[in-house]
Amino acid sequence: MEMRKKETREVNTMETKKVIGDLVINGNGSTAGGTFAKVRLNGNGKVHGDVECEDFETNGSSKIEGNVTATKAVINGSSKFVGDVTTGNFLINGSAAIDGELAFEKLEVKGASKVTKGVRGEKLVVEGLLKAGGDCEVEEAFFQGSFTIDGLLNADKIEVSLHGRSYAKEIGGETISVRKGSTTLGLDKLFKVLSRELTVDVIEGDVIELEYTKAKVVRGNTIKIGLGCDIDLVEYKDQLQTNKSANVGESRKMD
């Protein structure tokens, strides 16, 4: 079966440029951008212009009005980026709002993140909330929480543990698993969960296992439709298993 393939893209971080030292703001302060070894924004810091550095960390509330390129980035608190963000390892412990595109090697979201445009990288781990205004293209994606992706979620491997409502316009990958999340993790209290469900227009993959998913079309080689699913059309090539309690409008075996 012909599958949609994502582009292979590399995440470029620091280029060889003149480093002018470290940038540190403690308390309230603002400064121009530049190329640094380390950036530390502690308190209420604002940077006007592009920033390039090896190590980027914010603690408190910060705003960067420009593009950020870093080998490593950590957000503790609340940060707003007016521009694109390109990192190697990116850890979000609080909240991050990115008015642009986000590229990374590994992204861990343990709070809330909002990206107005596309998200791309190698490994994505979400233990909170992710909102993306464009496509999300990664090698591996692991969700324990909630997400809203206005475009395509595309990865070789996708594992979703539902806590709250999640949405993607389309999902494509080799192996796709969607299950109801465990209540023992305490994430349901964080999201004030009323229901746990994934809503998506189209899911396409090689091996697909779904629970509590509402979709118009599910298409793949081997498909398992489990508890809480409401699917308009299932198209499968090799094997289809459907839970008796699931609602499937129509199923077709493809040649």
Rank of each mutant, 00 (worst) to 15 (best):
N12T: 15
K253C: 00
T242P: 00
D255V: 02
S30D: 13
G100F: 07
F36K: 01
N221T: 04
Q241L: 04
T8Y: 10
K18G: 11
K216H: 11
N154S: 15
F191I: 00
C53M: 11
E159R: 01
S182E: 01
K117N: 14
L162A: 08
V217L: 14
T31L: 14
E127N: 14
G133C: 06
N89V: 09
S61W: 05
T58R: 05
T13H: 10
G94P: 01
G49H: 09
M1G: 15
G128S: 04
D230T: 04
V202T: 15
V82E: 12
E122K: 08
L124Q: 02
T183W: 03
K106H: 06
K131W: 02
S251M: 02
I92C: 09
A103N: 04
A70I: 06
I208T: 05
F147D: 01
G249R: 03
V68Q: 07
G111M: 09
A215K: 02
K38G: 04
G111C: 11
T58P: 12
E101S: 15
K169E: 07
R4S: 14
S146W: 00
N93G: 06
G94Y: 03
G118P: 03
L187Q: 05
G100H: 09
G83C: 12
E7Y: 13
G83H: 12
I176V: 13
L210G: 08
E101Y: 07
E235Q: 15
E15L: 07
V119E: 02
G151A: 08
T175Q: 09
R9W: 06
E137H: 12
V234A: 04
I25H: 12
I158V: 14
V68A: 10
K17Y: 09
G21I: 06
N28A: 14
L153S: 09
I64Q: 04
L91M: 04
T87Y: 03
E105L: 05
M1H: 13
D135R: 07
T184W: 15
I203N: 11
L227Q: 06
V193C: 03
G21R: 05
Y212K: 00
H163S: 09
S161C: 00
N243R: 00
I98H: 06
F142M: 13
N12D: 02
K114E: 15
N93W: 01
E139T: 08
G83Y: 12
